[in-house]
Amino acid sequence: MNTTDSQAPAARDGSARDPFAPDVRAVRVFAGIGLLVLAVTCVGTLVVLLRQAYAGDGVPGPLADLALWSLGLSGLVGLWALGIPRDAVGHRVRCGAVLAQYALAVAAPLLAAVDLA
């Protein structure tokens, strides 16, 4: 009878691994999916900005620059959350970065849609 089947899987350093510990891989997957969401929201933002520029008075909304900054920052935060080493930051910091990535990506088309004219 093998007794290692009933024990928790061993970590790389030989110690017992906690099965309820937060997993960095899952957060990295969500960061990667966030980069795909960023690509979709980038296209949506550009469509909104071009529609405003051609349909109205020829000027995009007043928050167009802020929307583009939001897209850029979302990409940077997503790449940071995806690529930072496992032991560099805590799990909560990485989760917060992924949440900020999604919030910035979704805010971009909403900011671009603001047109006061």
Results as ranks from 00 to 15, higher is better:
Gly14Lys: 00
Leu35Ala: 06
Asp13Lys: 04
Pro109Val: 13
Leu82Thr: 03
Leu110Ile: 11
Gly44Ser: 10
Ile84Tyr: 03
Leu110Met: 10
Phe20Met: 01
Asp87Ser: 10
Pro19Thr: 04
Ala100Asn: 12
Gly32Phe: 08
Ala108Leu: 14
Arg28Asp: 00
Leu79Trp: 13
Gly58Pro: 15
Thr41Gln: 11
Val59Ile: 07
Pro85Val: 06
Leu50Val: 09
Val106Ile: 14
Asp115Ser: 03
Leu79Pro: 03
Arg25Ile: 08
Ser70His: 13
Leu71Cys: 09
Leu63Ile: 00
Leu110Ala: 13
Leu66Thr: 12
Leu46Glu: 14
Asp115His: 03
Val98Ala: 04
Val40Lys: 00
Gly58Cys: 15
Ala10Leu: 10
Asp18Glu: 01
Tyr102Val: 09
Val114Ile: 06
Asn2Ala: 08
Val106Ser: 07
Ala113Thr: 08
Val27Pro: 11
Ser6His: 14
Val89Gly: 04
Ala21Trp: 02
Pro22Gly: 14
Leu79Ser: 07
Val93Trp: 12
Leu49Thr: 15
Asp115Pro: 00
Leu63Gln: 02
Ser70Gln: 13
Val59Arg: 06
Ala26Ile: 15
Asp65Thr: 01
Phe30His: 10
Ala21Val: 02
Val37Thr: 10
Val27Ser: 14
Val37Leu: 07
Val37Gln: 09
Ala105Glu: 05
Leu36Gly: 12
Val47Arg: 06
Arg86Thr: 15
Ala100Ile: 14
Asp5Trp: 06
Gly90Arg: 03
Leu35Asn: 02
Pro109Met: 13
Arg92Gln: 09
Cys42Ile: 01
Leu82Val: 06
Tyr54Trp: 15
Tyr54Gln: 11
Gly90Pro: 08
Val47Thr: 11
Leu71Val: 08
Trp69Ser: 07
Ala97Gly: 03
Phe20Trp: 04
Leu66Glu: 03
Thr45Glu: 05
Leu76His: 10
Ala8Asn: 13
Val37His: 05
Gly44His: 08
Thr41Tyr: 12
Leu71Ala: 06
Val47His: 08
Trp69Ile: 06
Asp5His: 07
Pro62Ile: 11
Trp80Phe: 13
Leu66His: 11
Asp65Phe: 00
